[in-house]
C-alpha cells in the first residue's frame, strides 16, 4: 500500500516533496510583503492624522474580517482586473495574468500584514515612553531613533505575535491549492483522486504540515529566548 508513496516512477513521493517545497516557498515569499505592509499599516494607524488612522485601520480590519479563501478569489480575479484596467492608463500594452503562486503570495502577504499591523501597533503603543525620551535626550534624530530603537524593539516584542501569524500563514497556504498552484495540498489532492487513497495522502500531507508548524514553533521560540537574553521579562 505504501508503494504509492515511493519516489520516482510509480510513486507520488517526489510529487509530494516538490509540493512541500512550493508550500514553503509560498509562505516564505509572503513574509517580506506581510512584514512591510504590516509595518506601514501600523505606522499609518499610529499617525496623528485622523483620516490616515481611520482608513488604515479600516483596511487592516477588512482583511482580518474577510475569509482568506475569499481574499484569494478577490486578489486572483479582482486584482487581475484592476491591473488590466490600470495598464492602459499607465501607457502599457499587453495583458496581465496572475499565476496561482503570485496571487497566493499577494493574498498571504496582505493577510499577514493586516494581522502583523495589530501586533506592531500594540508594541508601538507601549513604546511611546521612556526609551524614546532617553533617545531624544541623547540628541538622536528621527531616523536613528527609528532604525536603532523602534525597529529592533518592534521585532523583539512583536516576535511572539508574528510567530503565531507565521504559523497561520503556513496553514493558509493550503488554500492556494484552490487556484491551481501546485503546492502540497493540491498535489496530495491529485494523488488522492488518481489512486483513491484519500486517507493515506491527506494523512501524509497533514503530517508534513505538523512537521513544519512544530519545527517553526520551536525555532521561533528559541529565537525569541535568544533575543530576550539579559532582559527582564515583559
Amino acid at each position: 500500500m505504501l508503494q504509492v508513496l515511493q519516489f520516482g516512477a510509480g510513486g507520488w513521493g517526489g510529487e509530494l516533496a516538490a509540493g512541500l517545497v512550493v508550500t514553503l516557498a509560498l509562505a516564505a515569499s509572503a513574509l517580506p510583503l506581510g512584514l512591510a505592509s504590516g509595518l506601514a499599516l501600523a505606522f499609518a494607524t499610529h499617525s496623528r492624522r485622523a483620516w490616515l488612522r481611520e482608513s488604515s485601520a479600516a483596511f487592516a480590519g477588512a482583511f482580518r474580517g474577510i475569509p482568506e479563501l475569499l481574499t484569494l478569489f478577490l486578489v486572483y480575479i479582482g486584482g487581475q482586473r484592476l491591473i488590466n484596467l490600470a495598464l492602459p492608463l499607465l501607457g502599457l500594452g499587453g495583458r496581465f495574468e496572475f499565476s496561482g503562486f503570485l496571487a497566493g503570495t499577494v493574498t498571504l502577504g496582505l493577510v499577514f500584514g493586516a494581522y502583523a499591523s495589530e501586533v506592531f501597533l500594540g508594541v508601538l503603543r507601549t513604546l511611546d515612553g521612556s526609551s524614546l525620551e532617553a533617545a531624544r535626550a541623547l540628541g538622536l534624530g528621527r531616523w536613528p531613533v527609528l532604525r536603532f530603537i523602534v525597529l529592533p524593539e518592534l521585532f523583539r516584542l512583536g516576535l511572539p505575535g508574528l510567530s503565531n501569524q507565521w504559523l497561520s500563514t503556513v496553514k493558509q497556504s493550503a488554500l492556494v491549492s484552490v487556484v491551481a498552484c501546485d503546492e502540497l495540498l493540491r498535489r496530495s489532492y491529485l494523488a488522492a483522486t488518481s489512486t483513491g487513497d484519500h486517507i493515506l495522502f491527506y494523512g501524509v500531507a497533514c503530517l508534513a504540515y505538523i512537521a513544519i508548524t512544530t519545527a517553526s514553533e520551536a525555532a521561533l521560540a528559541a529565537w525569541h529566548r535568544r533575543l530576550s537574553r539579559g532582559r527582564s521579562r515583559g
Binding site: L167, K171, Q172, S173, A174, L175, S177, L185, S188, Y189, A192, H198, I199, Y202, G203, A205, C206, Y209, I210, T213, T214
Partner: peptide, 15 residues
Amino acid sequence: RGTPAIAQLYLIYYG
C-alpha cells in the same frame, strides 16, 4: 492546531 482546516476537511470528507 498544526494542520490547515482545509486539509482536515478533505481528510474527513474524502476519507
